[in-house]
Amino acid sequence: MASVFREEYPELTWYETNMPRLAIILGIIAIVIGLFAQLPRTKGLYMLIAIGPILAGIVAYARSEATTDIKRVADIIIQATWIMLSFGCAYFVMAPSEYYSARGGLTAIILIVAGIMVVFAIATLVAFGRKGFELTP
């Protein structure tokens, strides 16, 4: 179980526990923000991108709880973190585009949420990297 990981690496416990949670929560927030978009295509895009972090969070939680191998737990969290990072970046690329544009305020809010995804993902990768875990499992 992941508890073995927490005992071995207490400094990483916060990331190991909260990465899946934050991915799911931020994904759900992005979906809610998407609901306020005027254009159906913008709505669809925001929701579609949000599915990535949500799925990554759910899968990471389920897989990490099911293993006792410390390295495996780290690999699972790191893989999910990469997905959150990449999907977070996707908002930065797509939100400013003319075709998928939203009202100014909404774009700013989604970019803040995406920014939190990216910053948290980078912090998680740095934390695991400092402990010597392989960042490209």
Binding site: L48, W82, S86, A90
Partner: peptide
Amino acid sequence: SNIAVPLFLIV
């Protein structure tokens, strides 16, 4: 690839 590939697919 970890950063670029999912992003690229979305674009």
